[in-house]
Write a protein that binds this DNA or RNA. Structure first.
Lengths: 222, 222
DNA sequence: GTTTTTGGTGAGTCTAACTCACCTTCGGCG
DNA sequence: CGCCGAAGGTGAGTTAGACTCACCAAAAAC
């Protein structure tokens, strides 16, 4: 009772600083509660402001979510392209991207889940900046597949987009249980994180070599 | 003005008949509007009853959704197992299930979307009857893969579950744009339905043979 | 020191899921 | 045929949370 339901005086920040604080708090609350269960009032309270203040910075709750995720995307995939450039061979590049994708899901299951469930499913998604960010990201994998096909390391009779979607969709589906459960600390105990070391390699093999056995598993020597 | 905002007299149905009518109306409304945009009042109105009446039959809006989808699942996959039994060869059975899955998505994109977005992502899903139905369905594909491996037609060094998830997840991801857009008749014009004939085969080839070229594409003769 | 700009407030409105006390019709039973 | 209990249906609530707005006060501009 020391605060005695204290009325809030008023801290005061610049627009940039307040935006930063709101994005930080919003990420935490969205990650912990999911979109619908998250209350704008709680995000505001964590910054020491009142609910109405949030709407001075973001027009809607949804816009706040999109801003949180855009920030995360930029943090995350900032230097993927650079790292990728230092890897030789289509198959090795493929494996790298598969492993990175798995790692993103393992490390940020709640934000991935928001991306999959709240953003990608909405009709306004194709026009949002997040769509552009996602295209840039998934374009990395697409280009690896296309280049692999152009140089004869991959077969050229399959749509690169189909291959890309098989990989991303397959990973998402395989890790879905973890994505759905890893919300509260309580449930995270039950949901075991995907073991990247044991997943990246079989996945790469499956995509590259297929389900049917190869006669002597001949490996091309460059 | 001919109805003059007519007050509703009162039709009256048995519990079974009213439940049926509500499920029918709810499927239409959920399919057209999605879960959040669907109003319980509208579902009720389509049956000529008032909103409160719905809650005599279903405890929550969500329970109504689950009942709608459970009904749909049962309609849909009633005789899959039987049809599947008449097909020989793991690869052919795989192709059959891939094609059927694509067909379900093409024919019921809105309900698939509800399944993916509203049901599967919820924490109560693993305890719901829908989860059991889905396990039964996806078990068909899993068993095809396992049997194919047991009989040497498929390689045995890959987790069957990983293969299954790659297929289901890949299909879902590849058709996502259609799933997300095919809601209103207006938007369905833009979202072209997946061409099953042009998708089932490459998908089967990709999964079976892999991304890397095979020397002479040797096909086993049984 | 005055004015203007802008961060912040708190008391609203609005919508839609859900509740509840009551009404009314139907089927059974003397 | 008339009563009565059960069950379908009603409509006026309650509640929660997103969003709005008129106003205030501190900082910045002049």
């Amino acid at each position: 009772m020391k605060a005695a339901a204290a009325r809030k005086p008023a801290p005061r920040l610049s627009r940039a600083a307040r935006t930063e604080a709101l994005l930080h708090a919003a990420r935490a609350v969205f990650a912990a509660k999911g979109y619908e269960q998250a209350a704008v009032a709680e995000i505001a309270a964590r910054c020491g402001v009142v609910e109405g203040a949030v709407y001075k910075y973001f027009p809607t709750k949804r816009a706040l979510l999109l801003a949180v995720l855009a920030r995360w995307y930029e943090e995350m995939f900032g230097d993927y392209a650079r790292e990728l450039a230092s890897i030789d061979g289509a198959r090795e590049r493929l494996r790298f991207l598969i492993e990175r994708h798995l790692r993103s899901i393992r490390d940020w299951p709640q934000l991935c889940r928001l991306m999959f469930r709240e953003v990608r499913a909405q009709p306004d998604y194709p026009d949002s900046p997040l769509y552009a960010l996602n295209r840039r990201y998934s374009g990395l994998l697409l280009r690896v597949i296309e280049e692999g096909a152009a140089q004869g390391e991959f077969r050229a009779d399959l749509s690169p987009r189909l291959v890309r979607d098989l990989i991303f969709g397959g990973i998402e589906h395989h890790t879905w249980r973890y994505l759905a459960d890893a919300r509260t600390p309580a449930s995270r105990r039950a949901a075991r994180a995907p073991d990247i070391a044991r997943l990246a390699d079989p996945l790469t093999r499956l995509v590259c070599e297929g389900l049917m056995p190869r006669a002597p598993t001949r490996r091309k020597r460059a």
